[in-house]
């Protein structure tokens, strides 16, 4: 599903974000990318959505070589890659329903599909009763659920989550992880960048650790840190 071969990313001014990263993620996998801030986790996710271009190596996502993917195809790549962020990125002047519907609307889905899929997905994330609330009327955990619903409503093959529990308390985080786990069980590949020890340790999934842009550990049923 995602294959990185000797991936390199240097930002201007010579700072190195990723070095010789070779990872293969198969369909339906649940993978944690861990490591301290600045270790290259977010950069890796941005390369997958082609928000950033690698400076070396190869990256294949959902069967496409990103280096040869023309610019106009990038939106179609992104329809297969859902994204969730630490800060939710919800539109404050739209309701829960409208926020999720917006994601379908702007890729040209028609009204009847939106009317069917949006309530369905909001039911799945546990917000079936709060369709007409505005983001600022929701708790942090609920807002993150809306953002997950928005990322998943189009049933992407891959879901990228960049520190999705970073702003949430441990109890709320567990709920979010359950939701991501459920999405993973539908066959969606989930890649989650985090430095939340408790979350990683409780899930016992594959863990890839980055340090200074290099892969220093790739463990099938890992915990956050060996010996920490």
């Amino acid at each position: 599903m995602i294959e990185a071969i000797s991936l390199e990313k240097d930002y201007r001014m010579g700072s190195r974000a990723l070095h010789d990263v070779s990872i293969e993620l198969t369909k339906g996998e649940f993978v944690f990318i861990v490591g301290p801030s600045g270790s290259g986790k977010s950069t890796f996710l941005k390369l997958i959505t082609k928000e950033e271009e690698p400076t070396g190596g190869e990256l294949h996502v959902a069967g496409k070589n990103l280096a040869t993917l023309p610019r106009w195809r990038v939106p179609f790549l992104r329809r297969n890659v859902g994204c969730v962020f630490q800060d939710f990125k919800l539109l404050p002047n739209k309701t829960v329903f409208e926020n999720v519907a917006f994601a379908l609307q702007v890729i040209g889905k028609n009204r009847s599909i939106i009317a069917r899929q949006v309530p369905q997905i909001l039911e799945l994330v546990g917000l079936g009763e709060k369709l007409s609330r505005y983001p600022d009327e929701l708790s942090g955990g609920e807002q993150q659920r809306v953002s997950i619903a928005r990322a998943f409503v189009n049933r992407p093959l891959i879901l990228l989550a960049d520190e999705p529990t970073g702003n949430l308390d441990p109890a709320t985080s567990i709920g979010i992880m359950r939701l991501l786990d459920r999405i993973n069980r539908t066959g969606t590949t989930v890649v989650m960048a985090t430095h939340d020890h408790a979350v990683v340790d409780s899930m016992r999934r594959r863990v890839i650790e980055l340090e200074d842009g290099c892969v220093v550990r790739d463990q099938t049923h890992g915990i956050y840190g060996v010996g920490t």
């Binding site: 106009w72 939106p75 992104r78 917006f102 994601a103 702007v106 890729i107 040209g108």
Partner: peptide
């Protein structure tokens, strides 16, 4: 909104 449109794969012309 534009940022989210790009994120979810709205085409440039859209």
């Amino acid at each position: 909104e534009i940022g989210i449109m790009k994120l979810v794969g709205a085409t440039n012309w859209f």
